[in-house]
Computed example of a mutant assay.
Amino acid sequence: MLTLEAIRIQMREAETVLKALDKTLECITFDSSDRESVDAAIGQVTQTIDTKLKGFKNNPILSPMVEELKAQYVEGIQTQVADSELKRA
């Protein structure tokens, strides 16, 4: 069982990594009207999350979040695409 201090350390690590990940992912750009650009952005999101969180497989806070984070960011891209399509229609 983890001590309270160990949990605090893992939470600080998670916070730092998640902030850095968010900044990196915010820089990913794409053309919502170009399917190849959208697909490339989704690939970049997946690769970035895998790369940034690779060293945290044993962190009980970050490890379970990997797939959830990917889904959230991909959903964000898909929402932008859908919004763009509505504006063009």
Rank of each mutant, 00 (worst) to 15 (best):
M1K: 09
M1H: 04
M1S: 08
L2E: 11
L4Q: 14
L4E: 08
A6I: 04
A6E: 14
I7M: 05
R8L: 09
I9S: 12
I9C: 13
Q10E: 10
Q10M: 06
M11K: 14
M11Q: 14
R12I: 00
R12H: 08
A14R: 13
E15K: 10
T16Y: 11
T16G: 11
V17G: 13
L18W: 06
K19V: 06
D22I: 05
D22T: 15
D22K: 09
K23M: 13
K23T: 08
T24S: 10
L25S: 12
L25G: 13
T29D: 13
D31S: 15
S33D: 14
S33K: 04
D34R: 05
D34F: 07
D34E: 04
R35Y: 07
R35A: 11
S37G: 13
S37C: 12
D39T: 05
D39P: 00
A40R: 07
A40S: 13
A40V: 09
A40Y: 02
A41Y: 14
I42E: 11
Q44K: 10
Q44G: 14
Q44Y: 05
V45P: 09
T46A: 10
T46M: 01
T48E: 04
D50W: 03
K52A: 15
K52H: 15
L53Y: 14
L53G: 13
L53Q: 13
K54Y: 06
G55F: 04
F56H: 09
F56E: 08
N58S: 12
P60M: 01
L62V: 01
L62I: 07
L62F: 06
S63F: 08
P64H: 07
M65P: 03
M65G: 08
V66G: 12
E67P: 12
E68Q: 09
E68R: 11
K70L: 04
A71D: 04
A71N: 11
Q72L: 02
Q72K: 00
Q72R: 02
Y73P: 04
V74P: 06
V74L: 10
E75T: 06
E75F: 06
I77E: 04
Q78L: 07
T79Y: 03
Q80W: 01
A82L: 00
D83Q: 02
S84D: 02
E85A: 06
L86C: 06
L86G: 08
K87L: 00
